[in-house]
Design a protein around this nucleic acid. Structure first.
Lengths: 137, 137
DNA sequence: CTGAGATTTAGACCAGATATAAAAACATCA
DNA sequence: TGATGTTTTTATATCTGGTCTAAATCTCAG
């Protein structure tokens, strides 16, 4: 039989990978690959950028973290593993986790289009309370 | 008084810009900047890529078209000008316009977070009917 | 017709994403 | 334990979309 790795994962959770995972969890918010690279580099000075990049996508592919794309070029990573949505401030960029249930609408969509709906993500944009006050400048 | 341009736009709708806009409308689907560039280049051989790129974002900024980012690197442009959402096939990439009303949830969000909600976009992923049939390979 | 401002061109440049090859780490088992 | 095949990391090159700049060109009001 094949070896059972930590947590029964289909890949090795090496020192580097563990450090990267821990850093995503410790970062708070929604760090980019470059953020993680700079942080982890302090513990692992020989760490290559490609390792961070590949590891983040590996972890995301296997559900240990999630990755989101908000059209800024770089992907954002998130230690949360449950489905959720995002509220973004168009002025300061602040990103807040929210939860929007589309259950009903998703079922309707499935019937009408014939697609099998597997996932969805809602991106809401607006102004955060702070930026609303600062609007009159 | 200042000049009133075609349609009262705050910029000139030049030959190049008009060709780009027409091409987005003619393309059907959700073309990328590079697609538009290649197409329009046939009519306007001296057209620069930067002109296409800038024009598409200009048109989007002024509501003559919309742009979406599906995390593929390149932005997708859409001749539709009304708010709507998208259903994407994770296998073949087919992109279908759909409409999901979040009115109720958006109001709730606004109360709970203090954000003023200005816009939202739902991206739904799944398998299109064709790819569902082809699944057993 | 002319000058100011708007627009286009051409090409350089940047960053994130991705590919590759060689080195290193690791697992397995005789 | 030590040989061997596999996985992972490193280091680096490359691709691509996106962005910037300066000079050339166009447009329009006067």
């Amino acid at each position: 039989m094949s070896a059972v790795r930590e947590g029964g994962l289909p890949f090795r959770l090496t020192r580097q990978r563990r450090a990267i995972l821990e850093e995503v969890r410790a970062a708070g918010g929604h760090p980019r690959a470059a953020d993680i690279f700079l942080q982890v580099r302090r513990r692992e000075p020989r760490l290559a950028y490609a390792t961070v990049y590949n590891t983040l996508h590996l972890l995301a592919r296997h559900g240990l973290i999630q990755s989101f794309d908000f059209g800024e070029g770089a992907s954002r990573f998130d230690p949360r593993t449950d489905r959720h949505d995002h509220l973004a401030c168009r002025n300061c960029g602040r990103l807040v986790d929210v939860e929007i249930d589309l259950g009903q609408a998703a079922r309707r969509l499935q019937e009408e289009t014939g697609f099998s709906v597997e996932a969805y993500h809602v991106e809401v944009r607006g102004l955060c309370p702070g930026c609303q006050r600062a609007e009159g400048d």
